[in-house]
C-alpha cells in the first residue's frame, strides 16, 4: 500500500527556544482514516502547519504521496487539502467566491472551479448561502465552508484540524457521515480532535502525540485491546441495598439505590456478570461505559508520557 504521508525525524524549535517537535516519525497509508490525538500544546497543529508549509521545520523530511514538500513543493501541494482549526478566510467575500478562488490558486480552469464549488457547497448544505458574505454564516457553516474550500481541487489527502470543534451534535454527526463518504470514495483523511468518541467512531488508525513525540501509533482496534479493565454503569429496575454475594468476584460500587458501578477485568466475561446478576434477581434496565474507552487509554498514555518526561527532567537536574 502506498503512503499518503511519510514524516521522518521532524523537529521544530521556535525562535523563543520552545521545542515543539522532537524528531517525529509518522506514516499514514493511502485510503486510511487516521486520527492524530494529543493534549493541547502537544505538537499536533505544528505538525500540520509544517505539512502545509505554514510553519518552517527545523529538521526532518515530509513526503505527501512520495512527493517531498521541499523538492516537489507544487506536486506535494496538489495532493493536499487543509481544513485549519481557525477560520482563515476573508469574512467580506462571498461564500462561492472563497471556494472558486481557492480552485484558481490550484491552477484550475475557472469553469471547473465554478462547477466544483457548486458540487461541494451543495454536498455541505451551503448552496443556499452561496451569495452571502462569509461573515453572515454560523460557526458550523463556516467550518463546512472550509471543508468545501479544501475539497475544491479534490485532494488525495485531506487534513482536518479539529473540524468539529464548537459544532452541535447533529451537525457533527452529519459531518462524520460526509467525511466517511469521501474516505470511502478514496480520499485519505487525517484528523485531529479532542472528541475521542469521534476518533473511535471514524478512524481506523491512531497516533497519540505528547510533548512533540509520538507515544502510541497503532490501529484503534489494537489500542482498545490494550484496555485491562472497563467500568460499566448498570441501572437496575429495583433498589439494591447491599453488595450481592454472587458478584463478589467483581469490584463493585453502589452509586445509589438503582445504580451499580462494576469493574470488569480483561478476560472476565460479561455473560458471567449477567448470569450472576440474574441469580441475584437483579434486573438491569440499561448499561453504559463509565467513560469513553479511548478516552481512558488516552489519559493513561498521556499521563505515562508526562511521568517519563518529569523523570527525565528530574534526572537531568
Amino acid at each position: 500500500m502506498a503512503l499518503a504521508l511519510e514524516i521522518q525525524g521532524l523537529s521544530k524549535t521556535f525562535g523563543n527556544g520552545f521545542v515543539a517537535l522532537k524528531g517525529l516519525d509518522l506514516k499514514v497509508e493511502e485510503g486510511d482514516f487516521f486520527a492524530l490525538l494529543g493534549p493541547n500544546g502537544a505538537g499536533k497543529s505544528t505538525t500540520i502547519g509544517i505539512i502545509c508549509s505554514l510553519v518552517n521545520k527545523s529538521a526532518g523530511k515530509v513526503k505527501i504521496f512520495d512527493w517531498d514538500i521541499d523538492r516537489d513543493f507544487s506536486r506535494a501541494k496538489q495532493c493536499l487539502g487543509i481544513v485549519p482549526q481557525e477560520f482563515n478566510f476573508n469574512m467580506f467575500e462571498k461564500v462561492k467566491d472563497i471556494v472558486i478562488n481557492q480552485g484558481g490558486y490550484y491552477g484550475m480552469p475557472r469553469e471547473l472551479a465554478v462547477e466544483r464549488a457548486e458540487k461541494y457547497l451543495k454536498l455541505l448544505n451551503l448552496w443556499e448561502k452561496r451569495n452571502d458574505q462569509a461573515r453572515g454564516l454560523s460557526g458550523g457553516m463556516k467550518r463546512r465552508l472550509m471543508i468545501a474550500r479544501a475539497l475544491v481541487h479534490e485532494p488525495k489527502l485531506l487534513i482536518l484540524d479539529e473540524p468539529t470543534a464548537g459544532v452541535d451534535i447533529e451537525l457533527r454527526r452529519s459531518m462524520w457521515e460526509f467525511l466517511k463518504k469521501i474516505n470511502q470514495a478514496g480520499t485519505t483523511i487525517i484528523l485531529t480532535t479532542h472528541y475521542l468518541e469521534e476518533a473511535e467512531h471514524l478512524c481506523r488508525n491512531i497516533a497519540i502525540i505528547n510533548h512533540g513525540e509520538i507515544v502510541e501509533n497503532t490501529s484503534v482496534k489494537s489500542l482498545l485491546g490494550q484496555l485491562n479493565r472497563e467500568v460499566f454503569i448498570l441501572d437496575t429496575k429495583d433498589k439494591i441495598h447491599h453488595c450481592p454475594e454472587k458478584l463478589k468476584n467483581y469490584t463493585l460500587n453502589i452509586v445509589d439505590d438503582t445504580t451499580l458501578e462494576v469493574e470488569v477485568e480483561k478476560g472476565q466475561s460479561l455473560n458471567a456478570l449477567f448470569h450472576a446478576l440474574s441469580e441475584e434477581n437483579i434486573d438491569v434496565v440499561s448499561m453504559r461505559n463509565k467513560v469513553n474507552r479511548l478516552e481512558e487509554l488516552f489519559v493513561s498514555l498521556v499521563n505515562q508520557a508526562n511521568t517519563e518526561q518529569s523523570a527525565k527532567a528530574g534526572g537531568a537536574a
Partner: peptide, 18 residues
C-alpha cells in the same frame, strides 16, 4: 495586510501557487 490579519493569506500559502 488585511489578508495577513484575517489569515486569509494562508489560502495562498498552502496552495501550490509560487
Amino acid at each position: 495586510y488585511s489578508a495577513k490579519f484575517t489569515k486569509s493569506v494562508e489560502e495562498l500559502l498552502v496552495s501550490p501557487t509560487p
